[in-house]
Amino acid sequence: MPRLFCCSCLVPRPAPGMSKKPAAQPTLHKVIMVGSGGVGKSALTLQFMYDEFVEDYEPTKADSYRKKVVLDGEEVQIDILDTAGQEDYAAIRDNYFRSGEGFLCVFSITEPESFDATQEFREQILRVKNDENIPFLLVGNKSDLADKRRVPLDACRERAAHWQVPYVETSAKTRDNVDKVFFDLMREIRSRKSDDSRATNGDVKRKKRRIIKCAIL
């Protein structure tokens, strides 16, 4: 994971220009949960927020949660926007996606259709954010249901590699990897923000900067 390594060494703490007010709240990272209906976006969110698993399925419209967490020794805030998998009107989804700084793109390993749908979600996010390198994790949920698995691990890994994003399997039920996906995503967001601030400071185009940075290492 060269990129993660590079991020942690480059960004030990938030850049000075980040917070507008001195006595302000800790840095806010805005995460958006996307994916088909019923894959476990809300379950993951609630497990992360309150350490609880909800057995019942109640489709979400659009819910937001905020929590203070310690990320690598630094207190930050995470703002989670749990979106509706069943939102059938793409233009409305655009409006949610615009506000996101990082995305957990969730599918259920028991449901190939939800895996197929991640393709569309990815495309929409890239289009809306107009950024190839938007912090993004591909999350295969319901790993506890291994016996009902219908999306092969290889396919998941392949897609993640193709997109150049990390792939993690989670279980909202057993809490397996739940913290990991949120923290990993926050780290990506944090590193992107510091990149951006440097980029603006150094007046260098994002993409170039990134390429250069990686090339150096």
Binding site: A62, S64, R66, Y96
Partner: peptide, 20 residues
């Protein structure tokens, strides 16, 4: 985009309007 704010620390009964 309208968001139901489920949890905003001490702020209760809130909702968000996202208008980028």
């Amino acid at each position: 985009a309208v968001v139901n704010v489920r949890d905003l620390g001490t702020v209760k009964q809130a909702f968000k309007v996202l208008a980028f």
